Computed example of a mutant assay.
Amino acid sequence: MRARLPPCPCCAGPDPGRRALLRGALGLGTGLACAAAGGGAALAQATAGAARRLLIHRMQTGETFDDIYWRDGRYDREALTRLDWLFRDPAREEATPMDPRLFDVLYIVAHEMDATEAFQVISGYRSPETNAARARESRRVSRASLHMSGMAADVRLPGRDSFGMARLAAEMQVGGVGLYRRDGFVHLDCGPARRW
């Protein structure tokens, strides 16, 4: 049984519903006011104060991450540094500080799917040069991609339906969700809630 999130003081109404509470828990979609008012603590309460662990496998490099990135009410800097490198642009061996809210999106999606598999990361950070080259190759690549800001990842979960993952993430409205069925992956980001 999944834990129920406590009401966020800045969400409208006495019971704003699961989606608004998830947005508040991650500090997404409702802006900084929600996070400042305590919405960020709701995720920890929803998982009984548990630390947040991610399982990541970077497809291009074969590198993995299986560790806690958030504990005792804060992000672990060493873990975030390792994740920044893992999510780097492998074409240029260039990393950027990833937005930790992206890791929260991945965490809550895995948590809601009861996933024990590692996310396979197809694309994380993209340098402007790499993104421009990809955009020239495909109309599906945005020239203003959140990948360039360290706010997006293209992922899949082995043995899991990409459509089901995209639908769940879109229902939670914790950021952008793009389903790429032909390629078998889902774009997740910590930007505004939208879907394609």
Rank of each mutant, 00 (worst) to 15 (best):
A3W: 03
P7S: 03
C8E: 07
C10V: 15
C11I: 03
A12G: 03
A12Y: 06
G13C: 11
P14S: 14
D15L: 08
P16N: 05
P16T: 07
A20V: 02
G24C: 15
G24M: 02
G27Y: 09
L28F: 05
L28V: 09
T30P: 00
L32S: 12
C34Q: 08
G38V: 06
G39T: 13
G39K: 12
A42H: 12
A48M: 03
A50T: 01
A50Y: 01
A51D: 15
L55Q: 14
I56M: 04
H57D: 13
Q60P: 03
T61C: 00
G62V: 06
E63K: 15
T64R: 15
D67V: 09
Y69D: 01
W70K: 08
R71S: 13
G73S: 10
R74E: 12
R74G: 03
A79G: 10
D84F: 09
W85P: 00
W85A: 11
F87T: 04
R92I: 03
E94L: 13
A95N: 00
A95P: 02
P97F: 00
P97G: 02
V105H: 01
V109H: 02
V109Q: 04
V109Y: 04
A110R: 11
A110T: 06
H111S: 03
E112A: 13
A115R: 11
T116N: 10
E117F: 01
Q120E: 13
Q120P: 00
I122H: 14
G124F: 07
N131S: 07
R134I: 06
E137P: 01
S138A: 10
S138Y: 06
V141Q: 04
S145N: 12
S145H: 10
L146W: 10
G150P: 04
M151P: 00
A152G: 01
A152T: 06
L157A: 01
P158V: 02
P158A: 01
G159K: 10
G175E: 10
G175R: 05
G176A: 12
L179Q: 11
R182D: 11
G184H: 08
F185M: 11
V186H: 00
C190L: 09
G191Y: 13
R194K: 14
R195A: 10
